[in-house]
Amino acid sequence: MIRLLANLCFLGSFISFAVTTLGLYKMPDPYNLMHAVSVADSVGVGFAILGFFLVSPSWAVRIKLLVVLALFWIVNPATSHLVLKAGFVREEPLAAETRAMKG
């Protein structure tokens, strides 16, 4: 049963990475590319680590996996932000259909 759940997690991870790869070809500008990439970064990595967590032989490995996930979810948004901010500061053009909105 646990192996089945782990395999479902790996399948989810695989689908997330596949969607990201497809998204790289479909998104119109670098800003939107980041949205496609974030599917793999957040969900793909999350599912992969959950799958490994389920089939891990010991709690030492499971704790290590949780630390990896925590670090990934802290570092990844920071780097994504920096990439986009660099593009924004360098006035990288936005897609033509982009519109401004106030919240």
Partner: peptide
């Protein structure tokens, strides 16, 4: 909050 926004697919905090 900025980290949460960027971690969620479909939205990225620029500044």
């Amino acid at each position: 909050l900025a980290n949460c926004i960027t971690l969620t697919p479909g939205s990225v905090t620029i500044d």
